[in-house]
Write a protein that binds this DNA or RNA. Sequence first.
RNA 1: GCCGACAUAGCUCAGUUGGCUAGAGCAGCUGAUUUGUAAUCAGCAGGCCCGGGGUUCAAAUCCUCGUGUCGGCACCA
Length: 602
Amino acid sequence: MSAIAIKYNDDIVDLQTAQELGLKGEEIELDNSKEALEVLRHSTAHLMAQAIKSLYPDAEFYVGPTVNEGFYYDFKTSAEIGQGDLKKIEKQMLSFAKKKYPIERYVISKDEAREKFKDDHLKQAVLDMIPDEDVSIYKQGEFEDLCRGPHLPNIGLIRYFKLTKISGAYLGGDSKNEMLTRIYGIAFATKDALKSYMDMMAEAEKRDHRKLGNEMKLFTFREEVGAGFPIWLPAGGRLRARLESLLFKAHRKRGYEPVRGPEMLRSDLWKTSGHYQNYGENMYFTHIDELEFGVKPMNCVGHIKVYEDELHSYRDLPIKYFEYGVVHRHELTGALHGLFRVREFTQDDAHIFCRADQIEEQIIEVVDFVDKIMSTFEFDYKMMISTRPDKAVGSDEVWEISTNALKSAMDKHQLAYEIDEGGGAFYGPKIDIKITDAIGREWQCGTIQLDFNLPERFKLEYNGEENDKIQPVMIHRAILGSFERFIGILTEHYAGEFPMFIAPTQVAIVPVAESHKEYAKELSDKLIDINADSEIYAKNDSLNKRIRTAEKTRVPMIVVVGDEEIANKTVAVRDRRTREQYNLSQEEFLKLIQTKINEVNF
RNA sequence: GCCGACAUAGCUCAGUUGGCUAGAGCAGCUGAUUUGUAAUCAGCAGGCCCGGGGUUCAAAUCCUCGUGUCGGCACCA
């Protein structure tokens, strides 16, 4: 195999450029390494542009970069292009690739480039963004494109690719600008790599919580109910209830008090908190008589009112309130996505009111709490500290102090984190927890936010040692984020095969024949006593059929009972994963279920 | 919100260029069968073809306005 580019001072330089400038460096071959794929995919984007230009001669091109998942090219044409046209474009790409055009590079001045692409207003926009005097042009066959490179030496090297998606995208990523057409694609150096990528995509599709939620009867959405308002079905209700009760215990153990604020509060309060000004466009408002009310998009104001209900001493702090708080937010229609983005959801929300000297220990305590839960569900996670956003309340000084408090708490305990500049909430900086699921996708769930602003705005206080009035610090935190989103993630993480302790149904009982139904019922009652849900498959179907039906529900355990089991007071257990069978006495069986349900404590 | 696609039975989907009574599988119901570890057989029932308006002798099919869904973009406390 020969080189396709070289590595020069950590940059990837293509052969065309290396030759022109006489550069030498470590050779990059065409394999599935990060560097090689970068070059390959960039060239594949150009090949796609070449195909598009030949099929749609009026096409104008903006930019065509590589991204994490392949590449894309943004362009504009008067023709309407749909999903169905991707095959046609792929075919054209292959026929160009077969011609094995070399990719040539030359440099011209920006003015010459402006003249060359004078009919292409998108290329003019690209030229506007380039500060350099000279620009490089890459040419393959008749097709020429303004580009920085790097590229393959020849388009004949492009063989294993696939165009995956077509969509709209704003010019420059700004919703005020015109909308272009964007086509996404993926390319690899080998056939096997492309195949395993496609397999992984198929696996993700199989796990899609919207599909599984429908199949497993966890939740549903209905047009007549409204977009973004989930309906929880019995199986989903059972799963959610298990999660809620485990988490309730975990909060009590850590000194949190359950409280509850009203669903809507007078707008004056939202003005005091700053939500009215900073978050109003995402809130729902209504009137009661002459007064305006805002439906809560967050639970903090309610918890502040709980705090204000009595005087607090420095001895009482920290005070921790928690609530499974139902919130409503006006998400844009295009943002809605299954349970991941909805307009009504329930947060596992809590607010900690503490003294300034308690911030660090409280942050660390929450981080531990997060760790306990995420490791129970076998999620890897990382933490990110988000700093002051453009739209924010409070002085720079307060922001600085609170941001540093978060960083130093993490530093002192040697916890790793990344920084997200400008990603904070409008009232304070935060630590976000990003989890990685079973097939490597990242999700943002929990958040820990430090807030000096709301206590100031609501003039919160406690009595200090000198009987002076001191302002407490507020820590907002959610660990799952929302039950909706988290259950959606869990569904995809486990591919619907929930572990015993949260599964909607713990056991499926399959009696061999009519005469064994009574024994099945007896088992089912005993299971209820140990807080396990079961379902009896006694329909007038063959035994095989009923086992198949039970398997398809993804229940963690199936037991079959017949004459033998009744005689010996046993059950025949069928393991979900191995499909193997073994016998357990009734006591052993019940003990096993009980252990599996109770072994988990957050 | 923006670009594009889509919406037919509880679910998954057929339904030709506008043309007869809109079909299938699964699920459901009834009956026969009483089963030992992934689909027993037979029968029945099930539809405002997403909603409103229009074109046409005739609309599930064409046009239009909504609603919802999907893929992205933008948004995301």
